[in-house]
Each structure stands twice: as C-alpha cells, then as structure tokens.
Amino acid sequence: MSEIHFNINGKEVTCRRDEMLLDVALRHGIDIPAPCHHFALPEDYGACRLCLVEIEEERWTGVDAACTYPVREKCIAVRTDTEEVRRYRQLNLQLLLARCPESESVRDLARSMDVEASRFPGIQRQNSDCILCGLCVNVCENLIGAGAIGFVGRGAERRVAAPFDEPASQCIGCGACAEVCPTNAIKTIETEDERTIKPFSPPLKLVKCPECGKGCMTEKQLEFMKTQLGNKSDVLAGCPACKVRRRAQEFAAVLRGKE
C-alpha cells in the first residue's frame, strides 16, 4: 500500500492511501470537532458536517468533511482553521442548536466554538437532544448486531426510533448506543433489578452477579451473548468488577506459587 505525503496546517504528515483525513489529523494531534466520529466504528457516516476542513488538491480547493475524505496522491495541503472553515462550522452548529436547544452537550460544543445561541428559530422534533449523527443506529445494527433501532423518515422529519415507536423488542439492553451517543440523547437508567435504555427499550431484567449480587447485565444480553459465543459462554459469569477481582486473585495465586 503506497504512502501519501501532504501537510495539515503546514505540518508534514504521512498516511496510507485512502486513509480517512480525520483519522490522519487526529493521529497527528490536530484537533477537529467531530461528534459523529467514534473510534469503535470502522466507517464514518459524514452527517454532522462539523469536521469541515479546507482541502487543497492539484486541481481543486474547497471545503469538505474530513471524516469521509480518503487521502490520495492529489491531496496537497489541508487547513483546519481558516476563517471560512470556522464560519461554516459555526453555522452548522447553529442549525444543530436550533434542533437541540436544550442539549447541554450541543451547547457545550457550541461554546467551544464561540457560538452562544442559535440565530435560527427552533425546529425541535421528538427526542430533541438528538443530532441524528447515526452512531447509535450504526453500533446497534452493525457492531452489536441486535438491530433494535433505526432511522425513520427523511428530510427534517428523520429521527431515530424503535420499530412502530413501541419499546424495542429486539433491544438487549447492552447500552452501546448510549455509550456512543455524543449528546447524551440516549441514557442507560438502572435500578437494582432493571435496566432501561431511554428512550428505546422496555425495562429489562438484570442478571445478578453470583459473587457480589449486583446487577451486571440484562437477561437478554446474556442470552444474546451466549448464542454468539456458543460453548465459550462461561466467560460471561459475573460482573465486570468481580471478574477483574477474580482474575487478579488467580494471578496473585500464580505469583505466590512461584515464590
């Protein structure tokens, strides 16, 4: 695989052909706002348009999203902080603020880019903390493989929902969607016996850790993982904390045996 040399903000960088520009920039410590990018997911969706940068190619110079730009030989230079880039990012953020005026995360992000309030009227829809970045849908469908939630509708009416807007029957309560959500629009709420992924899942029963007695995963999650892991599923017993402790004790015992 051939190597590409180009510069970002004047700094010489090297990457593989077709590596995404955002990954290259982040690897070289160059900060670009990218709420819809998550390291756990192999491919970026290109939705939020906040990671805009100015790209200079042999025969074209313009603004594009860094997360979906594969670097090839024709790429000469990238500038991440021009006046134009800043203005476009700020405007897109204002559009997102109009969509999610109440969201703390979006407001924080806005403040970090010198945007105080949106100049546009609100267009709130259901679940008004959601910026429709698609991470939750992607992680649920492609990484976990549960397929519990998805996009519905198009245009400004698009939203993320469980089928028929009912509590998602396919949700295993793993919480991956909440984990990747950049705006905390999805929350994992846990009581002693149950876990709910808000706003998608019904309350899901927790399995108690045989050692400490605390709820460690949902029954459906255990079931789902067992089918995935087959005969290796005994590794699942116990909560993460107890598993670490047990492992540590075993290790300590080994060490003691060696003395």
Binding site: V137, E141, G147, A148, G150, F151, V152, Q170
Partner: peptide
C-alpha cells in the same frame, strides 16, 4: 433484515 432497517426503507 432487521425490522428497523425494513422500516427505514418503508418510511424513506
């Protein structure tokens, strides 16, 4: 095909 994916197509 997951039900959300079918609905995504059906509502698109």
């Amino acid at each position: 095909v997951s039900l959300p994916e079918v609905l995504r197509v059906a509502t698109f």
